[in-house]
Design a protein around this nucleic acid. Structure first.
Lengths: 196, 196, 196, 196
DNA sequence: TATGAATGAGACTTCATTCAT
DNA sequence: AATGAATGAAGTCTCATTCAT
């Protein structure tokens, strides 16, 4: 199924818009087709089924998302700065694309377990980025050697995800990017008082 | 309606089981009724509609959940210990009830926006518990006065939620309670090296 | 089933009220029971089933209706006056009981064919009254001997019924009784110009 | 929607048959679809919902009905003949289509108030035809100037409707058209003896 | 490639009636 | 006689997917 054809991207972008505007359960294939300017049947020339649209949407968008983050991190010299860059880019990209933020944080979570497992597969690459930063930090002597990689990864991702979700649920009415530094600080030093 | 009748609890418990075993979208009212040992129509003597079963389920279970946590915290004398108690009880209660863990972490998230909003209402009480601990910590001079309550709350809840969800998605095959102390440590001190 | 008990009438009157206020399809047995001040199950001590309430309602009310008309007619000395008396009483009784008018003209017509057949049985006695008037008129030399009894009966009843139904559907906002004389005139002399 | 497609008419005709044969309350959408030779879902490509089938049925059939009557009347030169033509066509058309007669006289009356209001809208056009005839009759000096248009309309329609309903309820076992002239006579001259 | 009319499975909820008390 | 909690059958409509053109 020809991923290079313009209609492929057309349909995915239509899906983001339709889902953001109507919500997951009111986003029928026919609505997506209409927004994309193609016939219902045409969807099935590019996607195996409805779930495939959503998985592809997530792969496509999250792929770009991760690439951007990987790029931005490369320019940083230590784990602390890399973590800050990751947070800033994570917040920044979602701030720039409100529709995508709604879709990934709220709507796509309503999907069934199968779809969520596939989404998790896509997310693994992002989690690897976190893992690398932590490993770097350990190597640099900045982070404890004994940190459990899995737990740290879950804390970092859980925190970012929860902050973004709350921001979306509050209608994105405050600045997400403005809180990047404090979140970074919290993750690095935790709740207790410490020497800066 | 009739919350004191045994059938009310019977139906809620049946709902947890059925949803955990079949998934949200395959949990028909008739299946729940059968498991509860009542007629389909009986469900509607105790619940307004299907969504009401789920909201009530969440209220009932999460209510007990929060009560237990509030009780456990009362016995602790400082914010740090309170936080640890909260984590241990949070992990402990979900470890004890595998079905409930599946339902709250995975299945109930597939519900529509309306139901999710009602669920969020119930969660607010839990978030308040976190807030109180953080305020205590500030008063004790243990936590920074400048900590943003909202961000901390989101970090703590996001971390707990993400760790539990991963545990559930990995078929609960490792011990959740065993990681309570390290998660506590991470939240308290963050990623960097520090004097214990 | 004990028609002499006070609850029998209580339930029938409750049924009239409930149906007039809620419409045929929103008049559940439980609503009628509540209005009558008895338990749902009690209804079934006095009536075989729901349809039996409605048939009984019609029999009871229509019985009184016809008795009144028969009485009023007795006092009149010729067919023309009898017809006028019948129309006046028909209109008068329904004008006095708005609830009953709504129930008989609109709501009870929504019942199924079975119930309507039973209702027709009750109506036969009323149709006989019409028949007798026509026969009287023929004997008096006032009406044509050749008039088809069935057709005349249908014209008279059809006209009365249609006028009352329209009056009810127009929210009873004009006087029904005021038009008795003109309707009588129309039935007696038809549409064409004639010597009075 | 799509009123020109053959399936639109197919479904309406199937609905008439199914309702005539099974009665209003036993006419499930699936039964109509089966009789029409289409899938259940196809119904909803042509009709908004089940009620819409019935309203459309009535509009379609009653529209043709009225058109025929209007045509027939045009050829007549005075009100008396027009009235006779109307009665004959009214009786004639329903005699020709027994299924339709059952549906319009008995089954559709069991519908709820909403549907009946919509049906009344359609009927208004027919009532206008009656009104025009009466006005013509007045202009010709045939009918009394003082006749109340509303009452006359109700007498004429009430009489026709009642005679047809009785014919249908008696299983259409006598000739409806044969009584057209006498009904006409009754409406024109009433019950009393008069010079022809 | 593209179309879009047609398909048909699947579930929530109501409410007349029963029967143990 | 009276209660009222419990029963369970039954039907409309949606929407992902197909396939003839």
């Amino acid at each position: 199924m020809n991923k290079n054809r313009p209609k492929y991207k057309q349909i995915i972008d239509a899906a983001v818009e339709v889902i953001a505007e109507n919500g997951y359960h009111s986003s029928q294939v026919s609505k997506i087709a209409k927004k994309a300017g193609v016939a219902d049947g045409t969807i099935y020339l590019y996607f195996k089924n409805k779930e495939d649209i959503l998985v592809s949407l997530f792969q496509e968008k999250m792929g770009q998302f991760i690439e951007k983050i990987e790029e931005d991190i490369k320019t940083k010299s230590n784990a602390k700065e890399k973590l800050l860059a990751m947070i800033k880019t994570h917040y920044g990209l979602l701030s720039e694309d409100h529709h995508l933020a709604i879709v990934t944080q709220l709507e796509l979570r309503q999907s069934n377990k199968d779809l969520r497992l596939k989404i998790n597969d896509v997310l693994k690459r992002y989690l690897l980025v976190i893992d690398h930063i932590v490993e770097d930090g350990k190597a640099e002597g900045l982070f404890h050697e004994s940190l459990d990689l899995r737990l740290v990864r879950q804390m970092v991702f859980g925190t970012l995800d929860e902050t973004v979700t709350n921001w979306v649920m509050n209608d994105q009415k405050y600045s997400l990017t403005d809180q990047a530094e404090e979140v970074h600080e919290l993750l690095i030093h935790g709740l207790t008082i410490h020497a800066k």
